[in-house]
Amino acid sequence: MTRAHDMGGRFGYGAIRPEGEDEPLWHEPWHDRAMALTLAAGALGQWNIDMSRHARECLSVPDYSTFSYYEKWIAALADLLVETSVLTRDDLTGEGSEGRHALSYSVLTAEKVPAALAKGSPSDRPSFGSLDFAPGQEVRVRPHPENTHVEGGHTRLPAYAAGARGRILRYHGNHVLPDTSAHGLGDQAEPLYAVVFSASELWQMPEHPNDEVVLDLWQSYLEPA
């Protein structure tokens, strides 16, 4: 995995071009198809959301930085389908086997779409471990924004917050840890907290002394301050 996706605070971008509220959701005729194909293939149940984020993050730096948003989705989907052995490389080149797939029994049919989208996949889990921090408590983010379970693996700790001192704002409950879930190592759910940081703690030249940034961080990302 590269860190091309970890964009918070990066320099070098121009002005945002806001769209009107009524602009179309999709700007190319294939965008909606790419979105729907990704959701429908996900419904086969062969990967979780952390694995699909990780697959996008595993695109090469040139691909990640030049692909448009839905191009990233579709490239990562093709990679995931092969990685999870749903498809073979031969399938992608049109030289694969013919006939129905063993997983076709779990295909998402049109009738099942409303229920599938309405169901969602909650990431909270019953809590068994210790709750180390409480709202109001000062904490420090661990100094290295790396996955400590899998070398070079997926993590949801942005580099800009590494080592920063913040304060627990709220406890969100016990949530699946992406650092293990993305790699098939189980949920290993942990307490998840909203942690607030002063902008001046994160940036050398904050725009305003009163500004703050809040991140949702898992307990193992944090240390007592």
Partner: peptide
């Protein structure tokens, strides 16, 4: 007015 930016790093 202070700005508080929420970076959605988890499933919240």
């Amino acid at each position: 007015t202070g700005v508080r930016v929420w970076d959605s790093t988890a499933e919240v």
